[in-house]
Simulated scan of single mutants.
Amino acid sequence: MKWSDALLAGLVLGLAACGQAQETQPLLPPESMTRDPEVPPPVEVPAAVESTRQDILGFTKRGSLSGLARFAEGNEGFVSNLEGTPHREFWDLLRRTGIDPNLKLKALFDQPVGRRDVDGETWYIWPDLAAKDPGDLIPEKLSFQDRKRLRDLIGEDGVNRIRQGEAYPGMRTAIAEDGRWVYFVLGLDGEE
């Protein structure tokens, strides 16, 4: 037998042995990668929350920033921005820069709702992902569907911010259990 034939035979036997080793000890991904995290049941909102949601949607359907601002002002402590700019003025500025608050609110209310306890009261938050703790928003802890939604809502930069321990950095709105509209923030830098 030539040395090249012997080398070839040795390689074939070695590859066969490797194949047998893989058959006896298959490599499996961790369980967390093979099953989808459990999807929580939908959150039911109280009548007062749904009533406020419908009131807000009424203003958004009419495209009325003035009506929306008056409604917001009627809710004690409502926040639309952290600079203290009046709601109507702030939302008008957003509209002139290409961000229509009415359309954004409609889009938010099309998302699932989440629930979070804040200072002794329950808030209903859209989208539901904004109600989660930062540690629970890490994509690997979410269902595949929620991972995609998270990326669609806040982009890769937002996901990186969450990985650094920040809270949900995107647009969101909340209504307290008594029907008080708490906030509508866009999640822009400085608007968290």
Rank of each mutant, 00 (worst) to 15 (best):
G190L: 08
V185H: 08
G179K: 02
K148Y: 04
E121F: 09
D152E: 14
L103M: 03
K2R: 13
E83C: 06
L137C: 00
R95G: 06
L129C: 04
W181Y: 07
P134G: 07
G158M: 02
I162S: 00
L13D: 06
D157H: 03
L186Q: 12
A6P: 03
R116C: 02
S4H: 15
R88A: 11
A167Q: 09
Y168T: 02
W3C: 09
E156K: 04
R149Y: 03
I162D: 00
T173S: 15
L27A: 13
P101V: 04
G14S: 15
D152H: 05
D100P: 04
R88E: 12
D92Y: 14
L13Y: 08
P101M: 05
D119I: 10
E83G: 13
G77R: 06
S66R: 15
A174K: 01
G63P: 06
Q164L: 06
G77W: 05
E31P: 10
W123S: 06
Q25C: 13
T24L: 15
E191W: 09
Q20T: 08
R95N: 09
T24H: 15
R62T: 14
R180F: 06
G158Y: 01
Q164K: 08
Q20H: 08
L57N: 02
I56C: 02
V45L: 12
P86N: 01
P169K: 01
E140S: 13
T85Y: 07
L188N: 13
A48N: 10
V12C: 11
T122F: 02
G135W: 02
N81S: 07
Q164I: 00
R95T: 03
A72K: 03
R35V: 15
P29R: 10
R88V: 06
P46S: 07
Q54F: 07
V43T: 13
K106W: 05
D117A: 11
R151M: 04
G120A: 06
G179F: 02
D152G: 01
G165D: 04
P37M: 10
R53L: 12
L68V: 08
V113N: 00
F184E: 03
E121N: 07
L94H: 13
S32W: 11
D157V: 01
E156P: 00
P112W: 00
G98S: 06
E191S: 09
P26W: 05
R180N: 11
D133S: 11
Y168P: 02
G114H: 02
Q54R: 15
R163H: 02
N102S: 14
T122W: 00
S143W: 03
T97L: 10
E44T: 09
I138V: 14
P30E: 12
L188W: 13
V182E: 08
F78M: 07
T173K: 05
K106V: 13
G67W: 03
T122V: 11
E83F: 09
T60P: 05
R96T: 12
